[in-house]
């Protein structure tokens, strides 16, 4: 069933795939992000309770959701690399880590900026923000561990182990932090519960979500190309590529 994936175990094929996919991820992604943001900022109705501050949702929710999905995707790549010994899988894993960390940071920052008008304080140890913070540490751990090894084959395997240990932990962390939070902060009830969201508010949210997902895929593909070049530096196909890029200065 997965036979069609097999050619991509070779870095050269994977590189070609990345080059092909990049424009299909990047431009629709940017378009959807811009469209969703403008719709959310200017055209979606105000929230009756929170006024215009609630427009932050159009970045906060997509980034929070995608920060977790990217981690899971990273862990899947780690699993493929560990079980089937594919170098390209580890390259994909480490390509996803930085953009995942940036998106997690965005979720945290926008969460804090939203928290100030909502709860009156920039930071609050609410279950979601706390879990996001721990997720950021998980990302940074994978990145740091990969960077600590000279031999990148080793680095990929080591970082892969931690990504997998982390992914097992993500549900445990979520459950425990949520439970911890209800214990200690019974008085604070989140105003943004899950009301039935009006369609005028839902559409920009979905578009922003799709846009950010495509954008993350685009950056992953770009960084994967870089990692492949770094690791395959001495191969003839990389040398050809570098020589050809001399002609035009557009990104190949």
């Amino acid at each position: 069933m997965w036979k069609w994936l097999h050619p991509y175990a070779k870095p050269e094929r994977a590189y070609q795939l990345c080059v092909t996919l990049q424009p299909y991820f990047l431009w629709p992604g940017i378009l959807c992000l811009v469209a969703g943001s403008i719709w959310g900022l200017a055209f979606a109705p105000q929230d009756y309770q929170q006024g215009d501050s609630f427009r932050i949702i159009y970045i906060h929710v997509p980034s929070a959701i995608l920060s977790m999905s990217t981690y899971v995707a990273m862990a899947v790549a780690a699993l493929v690399g560990t079980v089937w010994q594919w170098r390209t899988a580890f390259m994909a894993m480490i390509a996803m880590a930085p953009i995942g960390a940036v998106v997690t940071f965005i979720a945290l920052f926008t969460g804090a900026a939203w928290g100030k008008p909502m709860w009156g304080t920039w930071w609050v140890w609410d279950a979601r923000l706390t879990s996001e913070l721990i997720l950021l540490f998980l990302y940074l751990g994978v990145i740091a561990l990969y960077g600590a090894f000279e031999d990148k084959q080793q680095a990929g395997k080591a970082a892969g182990v931690m990504a997998l240990v982390g992914v097992v932990n993500v549900p445990i962390i979520h459950y425990s932090v949520e439970w911890w939070n209800t214990l200690h902060q019974g008085a604070t009830i989140s105003k943004f519960d899950k009301p039935s969201i009006a369609p005028e508010m839902l559409w920009p949210l979905l578009i922003a979500l799709v846009g950010l997902a495509l954008f993350i895929a685009a950056v992953t593909v770009m960084r994967m190309k870089n990692e492949i070049i770094r690791r395959e530096y001495h191969r003839p196909w990389v040398k050809d590529l570098a020589a050809r890029a001399l002609g035009g200065d557009h990104a190949v």
Partner: peptide
């Protein structure tokens, strides 16, 4: 096991393990 033999493994170890220990701490 992953970081044995690395220079400055100590801080890296803390960064790797603190998220893992948090649920235990909470309970």
């Amino acid at each position: 096991g992953l970081t044995v033999g690395l220079q400055r493994g100590g801080v890296l170890l803390a960064l790797l393990l603190i998220p893992v220990f948090i649920p235990l701490l909470i309970f």
